[in-house]
């Protein structure tokens, strides 16, 4: 990797917003999210259900049209691309889905699922080359050759997820959104898939945006982590530093709530009061304020600014610097 690619991120998201119209008002699913990912790195996006992490991933790929904001990939703003150019762009940006059951067409064989992207983008000429490519991809994700004529429902979750990965890799993408790729897998299989994804990243120089609710998984796989709450990134930090200490009270609660194997965590655990608020027409002020034990007057009226606190770490909290969590 040369200096140049270190400086300019492969993906830069600026002020991304996605609002949905609902009968009760505007739902702010993703509300002014900005971040960048360097080539070959993994950005983990964590948060609880309804925090907008999945929508963010979809909006970046324009599987959902963003309401506003820009997504610059390799120097090209893809939010303004027209349909045909976007289709070409899709070769470089792929997605791996959470549910290996519903993300594979039940009526297609393993080989034809993996072959589909190659056919769509006319990457191969002739059946022979196609089969060779499919074989190569199956090898890459450690799928046995003899499974090529099987159907997804005949395979276990781990193998199905491997199919999903092979399909995403077929077009040799640079960037992959991984949407909870291991959440529905058993722990022993989960480890197999995580290792595979890391190996592939090293070998192919892939850049990941890894969306998950599992803090342990995100810590394991990420270089950098963005914590989301109600449509906003509230803390962005290198992975190791975030787990060492947190600036935002929500990040702190999230990490302390993880049930640990070694110790009963009752004593140290910060148990949050209440539940996640409504993303519909949010009021000004900090969205976490009502659940926050450190809330002050200002938090209820002024929306905290997302600002850099130390090198590489940014947080959206009025009291980030004075609290020590």
């Amino acid at each position: 990797m040369n200096n140049h690619s270190d400086m300019i991120p492969i993906l830069q998201v600026k002020n991304l917003k996605k609002y949905f119209t609902t009968p009760r008002g505007m739902l702010h699913a993703v509300d002014d999210v900005s971040f960048a990912i360097q080539e070959g790195k993994t950005l983990g996006v964590v948060g609880e259900s309804g925090c907008g992490k999945t929508t963010t991933g979809r909006a970046i790929l324009r599987l959902i049209e963003p309401t506003s904001g820009s997504v610059v990939f390799n120097g090209i703003d893809i939010t303004s691309l027209e349909k045909n150019k976007l289709r070409i762009m899709r070769e470089k940006m792929q997605i791996i889905f959470q549910d290996p059951y519903s993300s594979l067409d039940p009526r297609m064989s393993v080989a034809s699922i993996i072959a589909e992207p190659l056919i769509i983008h006319k990457r191969v000429s002739g059946k022979k080359e196609l089969l060779k490519q499919v074989q190569k991809l199956m090898e890459m994700v450690e799928l046995e050759d003899r499974l090529s004529s099987s159907y997804p429902h005949e395979l276990d979750g781990g193998r199905r997820q491997r199919i999903g990965i092979a399909r995403a890799l077929a077009l040799e993408p640079q960037f992959i959104v991984c949407d909870e790729p291991v959440s529905s897998l058993d722990v022993s299989v989960q480890a197999q898939i995580l290792n595979l994804m890391q190996d592939l990243q090293d070998r192919l120089g892939l850049t990941y945006m890894f969306v998950t609710h599992d803090m342990a998984v995100v810590k394991h796989i990420s270089d950098e982590i963005a914590v989301m709450y109600l449509g906003q990134i509230i803390e962005l930090s290198p992975a190791k530093d975030l787990f060492a200490h947190q600036y935002h009270p929500y990040s702190h609660a999230l990490i302390s709530a993880i049930p640990k194997i070694e110790s009963k965590t009752d004593e140290t655990m910060t148990i949050l009061k209440g539940e996640i608020g409504s993303p519909i027409e949010p009021k000004p002020g900090c969205r976490f304020a009502l659940r926050c034990e450190y809330c002050i007057e200002k938090c209820l009226t002024d929306t905290p600014v997302f600002k850099t606190i130390e090198s590489g770490r940014a947080v959206a909290c009025w009291r980030a610097e004075e609290l020590s969590l």
Partner: peptide
């Protein structure tokens, strides 16, 4: 609304292909 339709979109498949190859057979 199943994810494999979204997957096909992410691969850059055209509407006609999605309807004819993924939706109709199912």
């Amino acid at each position: 609304n199943q994810e494999f339709i979204e997957a096909a979109k992410a691969l850059g498949a055209r509407d006609f292909r999605i309807i004819a190859r993924h939706i109709m057979p199912n």
